[in-house]
Design a protein around this nucleic acid. Structure first.
Lengths: 185, 185
DNA sequence: AGAAACATGTAATCAGTTACATGATTGT
DNA sequence: ACAATCATGTAACTGATTACATGTTTCT
């Protein structure tokens, strides 16, 4: 029930094509909402039927046409309605933690590999957020004001990534038996 | 593709009924995998057909019968196969952050309400984890050894909750205009 | 007396993923 | 030559949620 409203929220900021929306989902806000272009196209069809969005076909020279969607007044109202209700519960599914949970069935090497892979992934993501952060800090005042709350969502992303990386260090120490976290020492 | 393996991982630790599995999902490991009893029952049916789990009906005096499921050798093998493959990607969906992202359309009061509700939720969860942590630290050595890696997954839960709470403070300061995080001062 | 917890499930629907399909342009 | 990016979509399937259904015991 949140995807259509996430799309409306993005379009309310800036009109864009389905393809472009999918990209926005999978770059800037991927850490709290991700999806595929297939789902976006399907959802845009439903939103068009409801009259919450409309599109103009833009023919680009030498490139395939694109449909640039924008939010309508009815769509804006629907978004406001949704925003004024309490947010649905979060859903977090992390298969890697199932592996760690049952990790006593794996070799130390296999566990280290998994942990290394995750460290790379999280370092990369954190690096990306910090880049975006620096770019935003260098932007004009009006942009900063407009993007203040979207930026705050990214601040959480940064804090969560930092927490992950600290935890990964702790796991490594435990795997190497340099630390026994359940002893009260 | 991870739920059946999450069930196998839990059963590999300790046999239990469908009802009980659902409870285990929604208490100890809910922060990285949650589900409903309906889904668990359906999945247990499939796992039984595959021969990866089996059950015994236990008639309890004065209570309805329960089916106590345990993992089979084939199930253990299937779990090991899955554990030896790289973990699928994580999925995190947090509707509250959609609200904050589009928060410029809301009143300051509405935003504060949402933030307060989240602070309560995360404080409660963190309190619960810390209780479990204290109980584990007081447990016998064999229990500690057995639950070392499951405990490490909870350690991440603790760190993520702490990160959320710190971030919520930051959001509050920004909403109260006590802080402008995009100024490089 | 009523609510919550114990215990199991079916049915219907909704959300999300994977596979397939097409065709042009740009970069290595 | 080959991969990647731009740009759009359909179809099939799998995963997850919500509503419904039943009956007991224990707690307030």
């Amino acid at each position: 029930m949140s995807l259509p409203h996430a799309i409306l929220a993005l379009l309310d900021f800036e009109k864009s094509s389905g393809y472009d929306l999918a990209k926005r989902f999978n770059s800037s806000i991927s850490f709290f909402w991700s999806t595929t272009h297939q789902q976006v196209y399907r959802e845009l069809g439903k939103l068009t039927e409801k009259g919450w969005v409309e599109f103009e076909s833009v023919s680009q020279s030498e490139k395939p046409d694109k449909k640039v969607y924008h939010i309508t007044e009815a769509g804006h109202d629907a978004l406001l309605d949704w925003l004024n209700k309490p947010a649905p519960a979060a859903r977090f599914k992390e298969p890697m933690l199932i592996k760690l949970f049952a990790g006593r069935l794996l070799s130390r090497e296999a566990l280290h590999e998994e942990v290394d892979a995750h460290e790379n992934r999280h370092r990369k993501t954190l690096g990306y957020y910090r880049e975006v952060e620096q770019r935003l800090k260098a932007a004009p005042g009006e942009v900063k004001r407009r993007y203040l709350l979207p930026y705050m969502t990214m601040r959480l992303g940064i804090r969560l990534e930092e927490a992950w990386l600290e935890w990964i260090q702790e796991v490594r120490e435990v795997l190497n038996e340099q630390k026994d976290p359940l002893q009260k020492d």
